[in-house]
Design a protein around this nucleic acid. Structure first.
Lengths: 214, 214
DNA sequence: CACAGAATTCAACGATCGTTGAATACTAGT
DNA sequence: ACTAGTATTCAACGATCGTTGAATTCTGTG
């Protein structure tokens, strides 16, 4: 029955996701979005309450699934260790691996969403509030797991370590092309396999070093 | 002679820097900027060619000095080691310390600028190009130094390590308030001393671990 | 086929956007 | 005090912004 409705709504969300990711919330007009979605301007206000609401729905469309699979990855790691605690590297792997898996499976579907998150995370205006709203429950679970893996680590070191991780993670998934320029072609922003080999190693070492110090 | 001119021009740049940092290039109108600068709208187009040019001048105003003092910090570290190579931690300290020093000396002057850089760095649209334009000469010098400190490290590991560093650095200086929320007040985005104790330790450990592997 | 409700189109609103040209005020050197 | 050039003000341009209400088409049910 309401098939076409969902189809159009999704086309709008797809176009909005892509354009918001590229140009930011204010950098794109509703007209541009609807033009990219090949639909009339006023349809945006039939399916969504406002431009801001459209943005929110773009965010909410994928965040639940994202949190779900990452939480599942963490519990799987924990269940594999019935008696002892998982290693830092395993926990960080559970945090980052699912994101890379989605990107490898369907790059076009997820890349724009990750770019959007990177922009929000680094937005001084509302970034802190929005990121906390979407991700803090999940992140708190991961930090809890990391606390067990690093029992001598005090909370301040733990939170700052996670913050560094967050910055590295979101920039890497933003695929800005910076590393392509800087490295003169040696590295590519979109080379997921290369990232997959390195990120968790780099970050786990930071956690362990900073926490052994405390 | 042209004293008042410089004063007004600087007031415009200050207001633009602050508002661009908070809301992004498209999120702020020339009228809002000029209102914050307490000057007539058309003065923006007397002192600058366009809104885009104003943005460029905001960036260029501080970037040279920034690159200068960071390069100086690196050469000082290198000169301290006449025969052997500086450690990774020293090199990264030279890269990050000057930024923190400026922030500690005059927070209001530099915080908005750092926020702007964080947004640009994470912008999928033009971020890679702009960051490379402003910072690649300096960054290449640092990577060169790091290559000497880590002679067994291959370039791919080196560039990716720097990329992780870049993300952690820019997010941390964006002062989004995220870590305040996440930690429930245990950590503060603006606690420069806490960052200063931890960032170079965390990042140096990542470099060393990733590069010893290769 | 008739009818209801969902989906889409069309035209337009007031507000604000970036930008400009002409007129005015200020400031320095002679 | 006269003047040249710098700095600032004022008013306005066409374009585009987010948003809306009413009219129209589509779609599945009786």
């Amino acid at each position: 029955m309401a098939k076409q409705k969902q189809a159009t709504r999704d086309r709008i969300l797809d176009a909005a996701e892509k354009l918001f990711a590229q140009k930011g919330f204010e950098g794109v007009s509703v007209r541009q979005i609807m033009s990219a979605a090949d639909a009339d301007v006023s349809l945006a206000y039939y399916h969504f309450k406002s431009k801001r609401d459209l943005f929110d729905q773009v965010m909410l469309r994928r965040v639940e699934y994202l949190n779900e699979i990452r939480l599942q990855a963490l519990t799987e790691v924990e269940e594999r260790h019935s008696d002892d605690a998982p290693t830092v590297e395993e926990i960080i792997g559970a945090f980052t691996q699912p994101l890379m898996q989605l990107l490898a499976d369907d790059h076009d579907k997820w890349s724009h969403y990750y770019q959007l998150i990177a922009q929000i995370n680094n937005s001084p205006d509302q970034g802190g509030v929005l990121m906390s709203r979407y991700f803090d429950p999940l992140v708190s679970r991961f930090i809890e797991a990391l606390r067990k893996a690093l029992p001598d680590c005090d909370d301040e070191d733990l939170y700052w370590s996670y913050h560094f991780l967050s910055g590295a993670l979101t920039l890497t998934f933003a695929e800005t092309g910076r590393i392509d320029n800087l490295s003169g072609g040696v590295c590519s922003s979109k080379d997921i396999a290369s990232i997959n080999e390195r990120m968790h190693v780099f970050l786990a070492a930071g956690f362990e070093k900073l926490c052994e110090k405390s």
